[in-house]
Amino acid sequence: MFVKNNKKSSRLRRALRIRRHLYRLNAIRLVIHKTSRHMYAQIVSPDSLKIIAVASTLEKVISTKVKYTGNKIAAGVVGEFIAKRAVKKGVSKISFDRSGFKYHGRVLELANAARKFGLIF
């Protein structure tokens, strides 16, 4: 399936490995995705059929709080919003699905902000 040995195929390979493990755990997941301009986060039910909470830098509320939507500060704001929305819906214990992205930079900042505002993982 992944023949090329480049950044994208490596990330997708890591994502598959992570998701396979999380499906076996049957846990509620915090799924993130990042592009060069935006950060996206979703809380997904164990069966992957229901999205419990969503936050991204595309939202007016978040994009007005930050100057640029593709940096660590914006990732922290997304982490804060996703955590507050999840706790409001009664979800506090989750598993972190980083979608194959390395746990560094914006991904780390989002995770730390989510933990700070009430999510446990």
Rank of each mutant, 00 (worst) to 15 (best):
M1T: 06
F2E: 10
F2N: 12
N5H: 11
N5A: 08
N5S: 14
K7G: 10
K7A: 15
R11W: 04
R11D: 00
R11K: 08
L12N: 11
R13F: 15
R13W: 08
R13T: 15
R14S: 05
R14Q: 03
A15F: 03
A15Y: 00
A15C: 00
L16Q: 08
L16A: 07
L16K: 11
R17Q: 10
R17W: 02
I18L: 06
I18K: 08
R19G: 09
R19A: 05
R20S: 14
R20W: 04
Y23L: 15
R24H: 14
R24K: 15
L25Y: 09
L25T: 14
L25K: 15
A27E: 12
A27I: 09
A27D: 03
A27G: 04
I28H: 11
I28C: 10
I28V: 15
R29A: 03
L30Y: 03
V31K: 04
V31S: 12
I32S: 10
I32V: 15
K34V: 14
H38R: 09
M39L: 15
M39H: 15
Y40M: 07
Y40G: 05
A41E: 09
A41T: 09
I43C: 07
I43Y: 05
S45C: 11
S45T: 12
P46C: 12
D47F: 15
S48F: 14
K50N: 14
I51N: 08
A53N: 05
A53W: 01
A55Q: 03
S56Q: 00
S56E: 00
S56T: 06
S56I: 00
L58A: 04
E59H: 03
E59W: 03
S63L: 00
S63F: 01
K65G: 02
K67R: 13
K67Y: 02
Y68I: 07
T69W: 00
T69L: 01
G70Y: 01
G70L: 05
G70K: 02
I73Q: 12
A74F: 00
A75L: 02
A75W: 00
G76M: 07
G76P: 03
V78R: 00
V78S: 02
G79Y: 04
G79A: 06
G79T: 03
G79L: 10
G79S: 07
E80R: 11
E80S: 12
E80I: 05
A83M: 01
R85I: 01
V87G: 02
V87P: 00
K89V: 08
K89E: 13
K93T: 14
K93Q: 14
I94C: 09
I94K: 05
I94H: 03
F96Y: 12
F96K: 12
F96N: 10
R98M: 10
R98A: 11
K102W: 06
Y103D: 10
Y103F: 13
H104I: 11
H104Q: 13
H104G: 07
V107C: 05
V107A: 14
V107W: 06
V107N: 07
E109K: 12
L110G: 08
A111E: 08
A111M: 07
A113I: 05
A113Q: 07
A113M: 08
A114W: 00
R115I: 10
R115Q: 13
F117K: 03
I120M: 13
